[in-house]
């Protein structure tokens, strides 16, 4: 599993904590509150390290185990921090039959990381995703909010260079 516990120390701020508690207050008491709270928390911190899960468990007055089992069940929740640039390659069927598997392999090779990991400098993170819904542009990858469609392996160097790779 790529979703292992990170070794990068937690750097949450007071402001983030306040924001988190505010979000929890909105949902607390509602049935089914945990998933929306985790989604808000991931928006605030970018990921869900042990420390954040613990705060949520305490605030919602549920066990840490309940929080952890939900976090590790859903693909959306990440125990690993995000990179400065988050690369997401679509491995949905439409993209796969048009060669997105090769693109993903090449990126793993170039960046030296595997699915769900960050480069050691924290700059790039690579994820495989299932369909961004832009099947007409297949194969597709996104880097933060930029979408790259009709990709070929030869374009990767040029695209990565735009984000300062190899410098």
């Amino acid at each position: 599993m790529a979703n292992t516990i990170t070794k990068i120390p937690f750097k949450g701020t007071k402001e983030q904590q306040e924001e988190l508690f505010k979000a929890i207050d909105v949902y607390a008491g509602q049935s089914g509150a945990l998933i929306p709270v985790l989604q808000e928390a991931q928006k605030i911190y970018g990921y869900l390290p042990y420390e954040v899960q613990k705060m949520i468990a305490e605030k919602l007055q549920i066990s840490m185990e309940k929080v952890y089992e939900v976090v590790t069940f859903y693909a959306q929740f990440s125990l690993q921090p995000l990179g400065e640039y988050n690369i997401s390659v679509c491995l949905g069927t439409a993209c796969y039959v048009k060669g997105s598997g090769n693109i993903f392999d090449k990126l793993q090779e170039k960046l030296g990381i595997k699915n769900g990991e960050c480069t050691p400098d924290g700059k790039f993170r690579l994820d495989a995703c299932r369909c961004v819904g832009a099947c007409g542009l297949a194969p597709v990858m996104t880097i933060n909010d930029d979408v790259y469609g009709r990709l070929t392996v030869d374009q990767l160097d040029g695209i990565l260079a735009k984000y300062g790779f190899g410098k």
Partner: peptide
């Protein structure tokens, strides 16, 4: 609305 969290 309830948001899914990415589980097929």
């Amino acid at each position: 609305i309830r948001l899914g969290a990415g589980a097929f």
